[in-house]
């Protein structure tokens, strides 16, 4: 250790002048301030703005309009479609990512060799820059040279290439598939990690107790993983509902709002239509949903720590 007595003296003299009760909070202050200013304060700001008719380019001319923005959300069929899209997105995307991810994690753990290398490769879709992953899918779903069109033709599903990303009926689905591709590896990794955490002796004890492989899975694996699965489930919901890049890169939420979910709608309302008030009101809906998910996330998290 090479520290000077000088430095030590100055540490001491400064720290001695600060009362003990305050000193504890000092190291926590910067993070709290940062999070408070850039994450918590904006939420308050959003609540405030949602009561105004506010133009992005002329914020000083904001006009208080009470609950008019919320009334707009309540009555506007376009926004209803966006909320409906969001629901489909979250339900379909999350459940597919969970099923697929669980399968992947299980296969990696039980059936495949080189688990650590294989899991690193499998994780690539999740860590790849969002824009890169989304562009690949945009290319693959392309209407003129897309490999997926070719694949569907070869399989006899369609007769000729169709425009999927620009179709009002179909455009919601390609981004969901891209998102499943991005999220399933994450769920696979969570699954793999929790499977690896289960004591091998439990399986041996169960085998001694006459349990078939299926019963071992049903009575040991699943119950042992229940909190981890719950955390993974909530993470899937959260990542799906707040996703922006997959849709924005592939379809920009269009055509119309056919592939828009809440985050894309917020972006378009604020930065294309410049309607900050309505965008804030929409943000608040998203925020409340996330708050509910976070609440359950923290609940599960506390249980994990309390139980094991």
């Amino acid at each position: 250790m090479s520290y000077s007595k000088q430095a030590r003296g100055s540490f001491e003299s400064v720290s001695e002048r600060i009362p003990e009760g305050v000193k504890v909070y000092l190291p926590i202050l910067p993070v709290t301030a940062l999070v408070g200013l850039f994450i918590l304060y904006p939420i308050a700001q959003a609540i405030y703005s949602s009561f105004f008719n506010k133009d992005l380019l002329a914020p000083s001319e904001a006009e208080f309009i009470g609950l008019a923005n919320y009334a707009e959300i309540w009555s506007n069929p376009t926004i209803h479609q966006v909320l409906w899209n969001t629901l489909i997105w979250v339900v379909v995307g999350s459940s597919a990512a969970i099923v697929l991810g669980f399968l992947m994690g299980w296969l990696l753990h039980e059936k495949l060799p080189y688990t650590s290398v294989a899991s690193a490769i499998v994780l690539i879709p999740w860590v790849l820059p969002r824009v890169v992953g989304a562009s690949i899918w945009q290319f693959m779903f392309g209407g003129s040279q897309g490999i997926i069109n070719e694949l569907l033709v070869q399989l006899g599903v369609i007769d000729e290439y169709i425009v999927m990303l620009g179709s009002t009926e179909l455009s919601l689905w390609p981004p969901i598939i891209g998102m499943i591709w991005r999220l399933a590896p994450l769920f696979a990794l969570l699954t793999l990690t929790s499977l690896q955490g289960i004591d091998e002796h439990l399986y041996e004890a169960a085998r001694m107790d006459g349990a078939t492989p299926w019963e071992q899975f049903r009575f040991i694996t699943i119950p042992m993983m229940r909190y981890n699965l719950a955390i993974g489930f909530l993470l899937m919901l959260i990542y799906n509902i707040r996703n922006f890049s997959m849709i924005w890169v592939m379809t920009k939420g269009g055509p119309g709002v056919s592939s828009s979910t809440l985050p894309v709608m917020i972006y378009r309302t604020a930065f294309v239509d410049f309607d900050v008030g309505l965008a804030s009101a929409l943000s608040l809906i998203l925020f409340i949903v996330l708050l509910v998910f976070s609440y359950y996330y923290i609940q599960v998290y506390d249980q994990v720590r309390g139980d094991v």
């Binding site: 985050p263 604020a270 930065f271 708050l291 923290i298």
Partner: peptide
């Protein structure tokens, strides 16, 4: 822990204002 869940799309508009 909760603040990890919010960033990005939920607060982009107020963040811009801030």
């Amino acid at each position: 822990l909760a603040s990890l869940m919010f960033p990005g799309t939920a607060i982009m508009v107020p963040e811009w204002e801030l």
